[in-house]
């Protein structure tokens, strides 16, 4: 017991360091034990670093003089065409993803769209997560009919139902169209339509969890309602929620792309994957790379987040986490803790 208790003056920061190192090590083990999660993790890290570089490098170099980007070309720069009437060039060493019909470098355009699409995915899904979780917790936890909470719960759920009654894409399109063309109106449109799914999800999970014996046990132990909600209920619905969120980031990007594809979202001068697919649709047969490159970018981003999200569930659940860590350690090591529990 004594070695656990930090008694000397310097030990607190050291224990903290050791704790962080242990957490990092176990994260590494979990990722190693689960190859698909590992792939997802690497992909997401790559995407994140890339988008930081795409935005950050021009910004920082801009502080000291002319901004220098990491993209080979400006996404709107018109490259000289070999044949003036037919500008679309297939992928080559100079233009990895080829060029489009007016001579813009597709590789630069696809990469330039990455930060925007990520921001859209995270903000819309994040906003929905916050609003939906808040409303869902209230609606699920205080649902006793006849009380203030019960009335509020019914009100929340009926408003949610109204939103869910419309196909969310159609509703988003209607809102985006009425707000006018642009990135921000499209963003608002998706935000407005996105949260009801989270309310449903969270409420369902809360209803399932709040009748479990450990919640009753916590109540019997004198834990107040708010603490039960935040400590016991929320923690146990986190797993499905995080998984849904990470996958949802991909779905939002697709939906936003769809809105752009229809032509309501971002203006064509701003590179965005959905609007690119839309504007190059005519070239699908003559210059397929112009459509395939942004399409593949959407696909890979969604895939990366889905893989990571699936693995996150295993990490959040103490059961599978322990199992993962134990299988990941050397097989010769005895599983000390598990055997101690049986004693």
């Amino acid at each position: 017991m004594d070695e656990r208790r930090p008694s000397s003056w310097s030990s607190t920061s050291r224990t903290r360091l050791r704790k962080a190192a242990r957490a990092a090590r176990s994260l590494y083990r979990i990722l190693r034990a689960n190859p698909l999660t590992f792939v997802g993790f690497i992909m997401v890290m790559f995407i994140a670093i890339l988008s930081v570089l795409i935005v950050g490098v021009p910004f920082i170099t801009g502080l000291f003089g002319t901004p220098v980007g990491i993209l080979p070309h400006d996404p709107n720069e018109l490259l000289p065409c070999a044949v003036p009437t037919e500008c679309a060039a297939p992928p080559s060493l100079q233009n990895w993803f080829g060029t489009d019909n007016i001579g813009r470098d597709m590789f630069s355009r696809v990469l330039a769209a990455l930060p925007l699409d990520l921001v859209i995915g995270f903000t819309v899904a994040g906003f929905a997560l916050l609003v939906g979780t808040g409303l869902g917790l209230v609606a699920g936890f205080w649902d006793t009919p006849g009380t203030v909470g019960g009335t509020l719960s019914v009100a929340i759920m009926r408003v949610t139902d109204i939103f869910l009654a419309f196909p969310s894409l159609v509703l988003a399109l209607a809102i985006a169209a009425s707000l006018g063309r642009g990135t921000v109106p499209a963003l608002i449109a998706i935000m407005v339509t996105w949260w009801p799914f989270y309310v449903r999800l969270v409420r369902g999970e809360v209803l399932a969890v709040k009748h479990l014996p450990y919640v009753a046990a916590a109540r019997a132990a004198g834990v107040s309602g708010l603490q039960i909600l935040s400590r016991h209920v929320l923690r146990n619905i986190l797993e499905p929620l995080i998984v849904y969120y990470t996958m949802d980031v991909g779905t939002v990007i697709v939906t936003f792309s769809t809105i752009s594809f229809i032509g309501i979202g971002v203006p064509p001068t701003i590179p965005e994957w959905g609007s690119m697919v839309e504007s190059y649709e005519k070239l699908l047969l003559t210059a397929p790379w112009t459509v395939l490159a942004p399409g593949a970018a959407i696909f890979l981003t969604v895939l990366a987040f889905s893989l990571l999200g699936d693995g996150l569930r295993d990490i959040l659940d103490p059961r599978s986490r322990r199992a993962l860590v134990q299988t990941a350690t050397a097989p010769g090591l005895p599983a000390v803790k598990a055997s101690a529990a049986e004693a």
């Binding site: 479990l212 014996p213 450990y214 009753a216 046990a217 916590a218 019997a220 132990a221 016991h232 923690r235 146990n236 103490p318 059961r319």
Partner: peptide
């Protein structure tokens, strides 16, 4: 209070 089901009476998380 002590409950009947010890299996589920502790928060798994």
């Amino acid at each position: 209070m002590i409950f009947q089901e010890p299996i589920n009476s502790l928060n798994p998380a």
